[in-house]
Lab assay of single mutants.
Amino acid sequence: NITNLCPFDEVFNATRFASVYAWNRKRISNCVADYSVLYNLAPFFTFKCYGVSPTKLNDLCFTNVYADSFVIRGDEVRQIAPGQTGNIADYNYKLPDDFTGCVIAWNSNKLDSKVSGNYNYLYRLFRKSNLKPFERDISTEIYQAGNKPCNGVAGFNCYFPLRSYSFRPTYGVGHQPYRVVVLSFELLHAPATVCGPKKST
């Protein structure tokens, strides 16, 4: 009989979030998941669920729940959905087409922007091929755009693959930082360890 609440607040209220290319994953298990708490945590810009209804979450049980978190800019949030393409979905964080879970995003301009520009958040701009779903690539190998090998040196047709967002508070919403948490629900042929409040007794 599990009584402890799932530590969603640790994920959502973390002081620092990860850069999207090096997104963070927390496995959540053996706890009571009260998803209604999430609705009250922040004024969400996005709370979209796929393959599951957000209002039914509190009635369900899962084997595992994974919470992935990272920062992107406002106009990239739409890429965090099944079947999307674009720089983020292709080279940084890719959801599977049959994704079961929820994408939660909110504006973090007050936390993640600086007047002089916050350069701490990076994204991958160049990659030889698209990522597979939930693949994480943290390599910093020089990207070869031409025929000549780069031998690890940046220059003509040889690019450092990561680029930094420079978040400034005066930017338009599309270029402001957004914190994203992706909850993916895993149903294996194994005992369910993460249940809503109704199912945990």
Score class of each variant (00 low, 15 high):
Tyr39Trp: 15
Ile138His: 07
Phe156Leu: 15
Phe126His: 15
Val20Gly: 04
Asn118Gln: 12
Tyr35Trp: 15
Gly117Tyr: 05
Tyr143Ile: 10
Phe12Leu: 08
Ala33Asn: 06
Asp9Leu: 11
Val37Met: 13
Thr55Asp: 13
Ser139Phe: 01
Tyr119Trp: 10
Asp34Gln: 04
Val71Cys: 05
Ser29Leu: 06
Pro82Trp: 00
Pro191Leu: 03
Leu38Lys: 04
Leu95Gln: 00
Leu5Asn: 11
Asp75Met: 07
Thr193Asp: 14
Pro197Phe: 15
Ser200Trp: 13
Tyr123Glu: 07
Cys195Gly: 09
Val173Ser: 12
Leu162Thr: 05
Glu135Met: 05
Lys148Ala: 13
Asn109Val: 10
Asp59Ile: 04
Gly86Glu: 02
Asp137Trp: 00
Ser200Gly: 14
Gly74Phe: 01
Asn157Glu: 15
Tyr39Pro: 09
Ser36Asn: 12
Ser29Trp: 06
Glu135Arg: 01
Thr55Gly: 14
Tyr35Asp: 06
Lys26Glu: 06
Glu186Trp: 08
Gly196Met: 10
Ile142Glu: 07
Ala105Trp: 13
Ala190His: 12
Pro82Ala: 01
Phe167Cys: 04
Thr201Arg: 14
Gly74Arg: 06
Ser113Pro: 05
Ala145Lys: 11
Cys6Ala: 03
Asn107Val: 04
Arg163Phe: 07
Ser53Tyr: 07
Thr140Gly: 09
Ile28Cys: 06
Gly74Cys: 03
Val153Trp: 07
Asn157Tyr: 07
Ile104Asp: 00
Ile104Arg: 00
Gly172Gln: 14
Ala14Leu: 05
Leu41Trp: 13
Val11Ile: 15
Asp137Lys: 01
Gly172Trp: 13
Asp59Ser: 13
Cys158Ile: 02
Lys56His: 11
Leu111Ile: 14
Ser113Met: 07
Cys150Arg: 03
Asn157Leu: 09
Glu135Pro: 01
Pro161Arg: 02
Asp59Trp: 07
Ile72Glu: 01
Arg25Phe: 00
Cys102Pro: 00
Val32Ala: 07
Pro7Arg: 12
Ile88Met: 02
Tyr93Lys: 02
Asn107Asp: 05
Pro7Glu: 12
Asn107Lys: 06
Arg124Leu: 04
Thr55Gln: 14
Thr140Tyr: 08
Phe70Tyr: 02
Val180Cys: 08
Phe12Trp: 03
Tyr178Arg: 03
Asn1Lys: 09
Pro54Val: 12
Thr3Trp: 04
Val77Phe: 02
Tyr93Arg: 01
Asp34Phe: 06
Lys199Arg: 14
Glu141Val: 08
Leu188Gln: 14
Pro161Asn: 03
Lys110Glu: 14
Pro169Trp: 03
Pro197Gln: 15
Pro191Phe: 05
Gly196Tyr: 09
Val180Phe: 01
Gly152Met: 07
Ser139Val: 03
Ile88Leu: 03
Phe47Thr: 11
Val180Met: 03
Tyr119Val: 14
Arg27Val: 14
Leu162Ala: 04
Leu95Met: 07
Asn58Ala: 12
Gly196Arg: 10
Leu41Val: 11
Phe12Thr: 03
Gly146Val: 04
Lys56Leu: 09
Val77Trp: 02
Asn4Ala: 12
Ala67Pro: 00
Val32Arg: 11
Tyr143Lys: 06
Phe47His: 06
Gln144Ser: 10
Tyr91Cys: 05
Phe160Tyr: 14
Tyr143Asn: 07
Lys110Gly: 12
Pro169Met: 05
Glu10His: 06
Phe8Leu: 12
Pro43Tyr: 06
Lys110Met: 09
Asn118Trp: 04
Ser164Pro: 13
Asp137Gly: 03
Phe160Met: 12
Gln144Arg: 08
Ala14Ser: 09
Pro197Lys: 15
Gly174His: 12
Leu60Met: 14
Leu5Ala: 13
Lys148Arg: 11
Gln176Thr: 04
Thr140Leu: 09
Val173Met: 13
Trp23Val: 03
Ile72Gly: 01
Lys94Glu: 01
Ala22His: 09
Asp137Asn: 07
Ala42His: 12
Asn40His: 12
Lys114Tyr: 10
Val77Ala: 04
Val20Cys: 04
Gly51His: 07
Val182Ile: 06
Pro191Asp: 14
Val153Met: 14
Phe17Thr: 03
Ser166Trp: 07
Arg163His: 10
Pro149Val: 10
Leu162Ile: 10
Phe62Asp: 07
Gly152Trp: 05
Phe8Asp: 03
Val32Cys: 12
Gln176Val: 03
Ser29Asp: 09
Pro96Thr: 01
Val173Ile: 13
Glu186Cys: 05
Arg163Lys: 15
Asn109Trp: 08
Leu162Trp: 01
Phe45Thr: 15
Tyr143Asp: 08
Ala22Gly: 06
Ile88Trp: 01
Ser184Tyr: 10
Ser129Trp: 08
Tyr121Phe: 10
Glu10Ala: 10
Phe156Gly: 15
Asn4Trp: 07
Phe62Ser: 07
Asn64Ala: 15
Asp97Glu: 11
Val71Tyr: 01
Asn109Ile: 07
Asp75Asn: 11
Ile142Lys: 06
Tyr35Pro: 08
Lys128Glu: 13
Thr100Gly: 00
Ile2Trp: 11
Ala67Leu: 11
Gly83Val: 04
Asn157Ile: 05
Pro82Glu: 03
Asn30Leu: 04
Arg78Asp: 14
Arg124Asn: 04
Ile2His: 12
Gln144Cys: 06
Val65Asn: 02
Cys61Val: 10
Thr63Ser: 14
Val37Asp: 09
Glu10Gly: 06
Asp90Thr: 05
Ser164Cys: 08
Pro161Glu: 02
Pro169Gln: 10
Val65Gly: 11
Tyr66Ser: 08
Phe62Pro: 08
Thr193Ile: 09
Lys26Asn: 05
Arg127Leu: 04
Asn107Cys: 06
Leu183Ala: 00
Glu186Thr: 09
Lys199His: 15
Asn58Phe: 07
Phe62His: 08
Val173Phe: 11
Ile2Ala: 14
Gly101Met: 00
Glu141Asn: 11
Asn13Ser: 06
Arg168Ala: 12
Lys199Asn: 15
His175Asn: 15
Asn130Thr: 14
Trp23Arg: 01
Pro191Val: 07
Gly74Met: 04
Asn147Ala: 14
Ile80Asp: 03
Ser53Ala: 12
Cys49Lys: 00
Asp59His: 12
Ile88Ser: 02
Pro96Met: 00
Cys150Lys: 05
Lys56Ala: 11
Ser200Glu: 13
Tyr35Met: 14
Gly146Arg: 06
Lys114Thr: 15
Cys49Gln: 00
Leu57Ala: 06
Ala42Trp: 09
Tyr123Ala: 07
Phe44Glu: 15
Leu95Pro: 02
Leu5Cys: 08
Tyr123Ile: 03
Pro133Leu: 01
Tyr93Glu: 01
Asp98Met: 05
Val103Thr: 01
Cys49Arg: 00
Leu188Asp: 15
Gly152Val: 06
Phe45Met: 15
Asn13Trp: 00
Leu162Phe: 07
Asn13Arg: 04
Thr193Gln: 12
Val37Asn: 10
Leu111Trp: 13
Gly146Pro: 05
Phe99Glu: 00
Val77Glu: 03
Ser108Cys: 05
Ser113Asp: 07
Val181Ile: 07
Pro43Gln: 09
Ser166Val: 10
Val52Leu: 11
His189Gln: 14
Leu111Gly: 06
Pro7Gln: 12
Lys199Val: 15
Val153Thr: 15
Ile138Tyr: 07
Lys26Met: 09
Val32Lys: 10
Lys26Asp: 04
Asn24Val: 07
Phe160Gly: 08
Glu141Ala: 10
Asn151Glu: 12
Val153Gly: 11
Cys31His: 04
Cys150Ala: 05
Asp97Tyr: 07
Asn1Glu: 09
Gly196Asn: 11
Lys148Asp: 12
Tyr39Asn: 14
Val153Gln: 14
Ser69Asn: 03
Leu111Thr: 14
Asn147Leu: 11
Thr15Ile: 06
Leu60Phe: 08
Tyr143Met: 08
Ser200Gln: 14
Ser69Gly: 01
Ala67Gln: 03
Asn24Cys: 06
Trp23Met: 04
Ile138Asn: 15
Arg16Gln: 13
Lys26His: 07
Asp98Tyr: 06
Ile28Asn: 01
Asn109Glu: 11
Leu131Ala: 04
Leu5Val: 11
Tyr91Thr: 04
Gly74Lys: 07
Lys110Trp: 06
Asn120Leu: 09
Pro43Asn: 10
Phe45Pro: 15
Asn118Met: 06
Arg179Lys: 03
Pro96Val: 00
Ser113Phe: 05
Asn92Cys: 03
Thr100Ala: 07
Glu141His: 10
Val182Asp: 00
Lys128Met: 08
Ser69Met: 04
Ala145Asn: 12
Tyr35His: 06
Lys199Phe: 14
Ser69Asp: 02
Trp106Thr: 01
Leu122Asp: 09
Leu95Val: 10
Ile80Met: 03
Asn30Ala: 08
Cys31Ala: 06
Leu57Cys: 03
Tyr143Glu: 08
Asp75Ser: 11
Asp90Ser: 08
His189Trp: 07
Ser164Ile: 06
Thr15Glu: 13
Arg136Phe: 02
Arg73Ser: 10
Pro191Asn: 15
Ile2Ser: 13
Gly172Ile: 14
Asp68Asn: 01
